[in-house]
Design a protein around this nucleic acid. Structure first.
Lengths: 161, 161
DNA sequence: CTGACTGCAAACCCTTTGCAGACCG
DNA sequence: CGGTCTGCAAAGGGTTTGCAGTCAG
């Protein structure tokens, strides 16, 4: 599945501009890796991107793909699905519910919101397929951390997702 | 943060019943591990549970914690936050959007839904803290897989989340 | 009693890091 | 040309697995 040509072109330009502004070098590898992810609708993982660019660049290595992706993430040109590098967490609450996660301290709280029930979800994804489960994750700064932040360090890193 | 005593008791009974029905043995380790996760509101990871039960059971091992948690997951008594054992996926779509993921083939599609915008999120989590980002993930069986399932294998494993 | 379960240690997978050479600007 | 970037190989961290002894039913 491909992003259309015009949009891909726009994304490539945005990358070149951002790279220049950030003083980051535009290497062959970076251009190919960015073209690959910017042209896909699949949200691929590093391995998939690696295999996709290999035919065009036989000497590229997987670690360069990782380094490039995190660099793009740093420049706010890509984000990640799911939290970065977190171990699996388990949940014994059997009622349908959603999660609020503090990006600063990791505090996690359940909440129930009829607005986000199965029916609303099914409506939103009509055409894709059936709904088995749905899950809203809201990230923010919890009350406690807000106070701490106000008192001490106001430069909390932007954490996209 | 603790689940209240009555609810914990109910969960313990549900576990014992489910275990008996599934022909799974009720070992000391399993009871303690379940008690730990069922009594917490924090959605802990395996390591955290391990450390929490260690004082009560000095010889327990981390791999037993993992085995027990996946067994509980199998019995539909716990679920996981975030997908199980998946590598990080990257996303070059910069517009705010949500994801539909097919639990069978992994197909992932973006969708935008004004109903689930930041404002709706902020309302839902009022009291917990501020909102930095939010993300809806809907899991289901995509159109393509529905056909395949209807044709061949109708026993798709329930995949909670 | 006996098969299911545990603890141990080693394997595994994905991801990251240190280093010396290559290349962009 | 100089500092950044790459490729390689090896390390790292979380999770899983094979095995022999142990324990619930």
């Amino acid at each position: 599945m491909k992003v259309d040509e015009a949009e891909l072109g726009r994304r490539m330009e945005a990358f070149k501009k951002a790279a220049r502004e950030a003083g980051v070098k535009l290497t062959h590898q970076r251009l190919e890796i960015f073209r690959e992810i910017a042209g896909s609708l699949e949200h691929p993982d590093a391995e998939t991107i690696f295999k996709a660019v290999q035919p065009r660049m036989p000497t590229v290595s997987l670690d360069t793909v990782y380094r490039t992706l995190w660099m793009l993430n740093e420049l706010d040109l890509v984000s990640t699905l799911g939290p970065r590098r977190e171990s699996i967490r388990f949940d014994a609450n059997l009622r349908p519910h959603h999660h609020y996660v503090c990006v600063r301290c990791g505090l996690t709280r359940d909440f129930e919101a009829p607005v986000f029930d199965e029916q609303a979800m099914a409506g939103a994804v009509k055409g894709f397929g059936s709904v088995v489960a749905s899950q809203v994750e809201v990230r923010g700064i919890c009350e406690n951390c807000s106070k701490a932040v106000a008192a001490a360090d106001t430069s909390v890193r932007h954490q996209p997702r």
